[in-house]
Design a protein around this nucleic acid. Structure first.
Length: 476
DNA sequence: CCTGGAGTTGTCCTA
DNA sequence: TTAGGACAACTCCAG
């Protein structure tokens, strides 16, 4: 290609310069116009959530800095915007990294054909997954529905993932920097999320790398077991960075492998972490091969499940006022930090879907709106899993007991105390089930149930049995 | 086509 | 106190 050719790189969920195959391709073809488009056409149910908007804004800001102020932001219909840009700057080459949301695949396919018809060459790349979903198939060519064989045969027995690319030397099309229009995307209309983001997170490519580095020297040492304890710092905390592509999955994979090579004693912990990356691949594979994953039960039998309509219960769950401490702690962590520890996602999910028997769609929607790492594949697959209606269904009898879970995974109650301060003085013996505490214990702890902390909104034992009965109706 | 083992993350009861 | 088995039946997957 002529060195004076100009290419557009369209950033989507790959807000980084390192290990970005599409950006690399644009940069090695000549001059580059880096573009981000905030889209009007996203179907309503998949419109970006409140927390995600704030993250996105700061991530774009950070990316713009990395690109020396050359990132151009637009709002509207990608087809119109790209076409105009191509005309204006005589661009004949556009690159992007693939995304896998079903509506996006459909849009990209149409767009690619359209742009081709204008004589523009479009190249798409794999910048977001270790293995493409159409590569991880069973011998008969159909997709896996169970994680273990998916990971062992589909992933580990396949070709090793691409090794990461260095950030390219970029020659920008524009010599001088223009206003980049980021502030007009309307991503910061919710101020409260912004304050939370600033106090809990650092956004951007450099910060994502720093976080990986820190995890590989600390958290990973006790990952396999430590990852279950929300009060411990054993998880990577990379999920929002991975969602926005501030760091590539290949970078995380290979850095972990490298660490494992240097410190073989990490074997169990490191391999467990790698398998969690495998879960991300699995979710994407499910979404790709079953595009109705976000909306429909994978197991059709669940269409008949007797869900309960319970606005009051749903509101109590969202606001962390169910009266069940470990559930409330998790829900308040989510509201306060835009994140929830994985163990708690299972506990609060099980509580919503099984103890309250509220449809998983409601939990999915709330997570979608409030999580900084909200990701269509992971969120949908996760809720289907906990509801037991997914491909790899949880056994009907796997109903988490939030008291037992608290005892096991927050044994000193410190996580509960952190997020439910009204229970701070309750002795550990009763912190998981304050409704069982004697009156005088509650009194000295400053707790009045029904006043400054709710009575539990459901009886755990009764609601568990009701859930089992509801499952039994699916058998017939 | 058939066969047999297995399925991320659990809980409860009983001996 | 604790360890082990029961808890539906089914589907998935590899040989």
């Amino acid at each position: 290609m002529a060195p004076d050719q100009t290419s557009i790189h369209w950033f989507r969920q790959d807000l980084r310069t390192a290990d970005n195959p599409a950006l690399m391709s644009a940069a090695s073809s000549g001059r580059v116009i880096p573009v981000y488009i905030s889209e009007d056409l996203t179907p309503d149910e998949f419109k970006i959530g409140s927390a995600s908007k704030v993250w996105l804004h700061h991530s774009l800001d950070s990316l713009n800095n990395t690109l020396d102020g050359h990132l151009r932001c637009f709002r509207g219909n990608p087809e119109t915007i790209l076409e105009k840009l191509c005309k204006k700057y005589h661009v004949k080459h556009i690159t992007w990294n693939r995304a896998y949301d079903p509506w996006r695949i459909e849009q990209d396919t149409k767009l690619k054909a359209k742009l081709h018809s204008y004589g523009i060459k479009v190249q798409s790349f794999n910048g977001n997954l270790l293995w493409e979903p159409w590569e991880t198939l069973k011998a008969d060519g159909s997709p896996y529905r169970v994680f273990t064989p998916f990971y062992k045969n589909g992933c580990l027995n396949a070709n090793a993932p691409r090794t990461p690319l260095s950030p390219p030397e970029i020659c920008f099309h524009d010599q001088k920097v223009e206003p980049n229009n980021l502030d007009n995307l309307g991503l910061l209309d919710n101020k409260s999320w912004e304050d939370d983001l600033k106090s809990e997170w650092s956004v951007g490519e450099d910060e994502a790398s720093a976080k990986l580095k820190q995890f590989l020297s600390e958290g990973i040492n006790s990952y396999k077991d430590g990852r279950n304890f929300p009060a411990q710092q054993s998880v990577s905390g990379l999920s929002p960075h991975l969602h926005w592509g501030e760091i590539s999955i290949n970078t995380v994979w290979h850095a972990t492998k490298e660490q494992l090579k240097q410190r073989p004693e990490l074997s169990e912990n490191a391999n467990h972490f790698l398998s969690e990356l495998g879960w991300r691949e699995f979710s994407y594979s499910l979404l790709y091969h079953f595009p109705s994953l976000p909306t429909k039960n994978l197991n059709p039998r669940f269409e008949k499940f007797p869900w309960v309509k319970d606005q009051v219960g749903l509101r109590a769950w969202k606001s962390g006022r169910t009266g069940v401490p470990i559930v409330d702690a998790g829900m308040r962590q989510l509201w306060k930090t835009g994140y929830m520890h994985n163990r708690l996602r299972m506990i609060v999910g099980s509580f919503l879907v099984k103890n309250l028997r509220i449809h998983w769609h409601h939990g999915q929607a709330w997570f979608w709106d409030t999580l900084f790492d909200a990701d269509l594949a992971n969120n949908s697959a996760g809720w289907q899993w906990i509801a037991g209606c997914g491909a790899d269904a949880a056994p009907y009898f796997r109903i988490f007991n939030p008291v037992t879970q608290g005892l096991k995974f927050d044994p000193d109650g410190s996580f509960i105390r952190q997020y439910v301060p009204e229970l701070e003085k309750v002795p550990v013996k009763y912190i998981f089930d304050p409704w069982n505490a004697p009156q005088d214990v509650l009194a000295t702890s400053g707790v009045v149930l029904g006043e400054n902390y709710p009575h539990p909104i459901v009886d755990l034992k009764v609601s568990r049995e009701k859930a089992l009965e509801a499952f039994a109706t699916l058998k017939a």
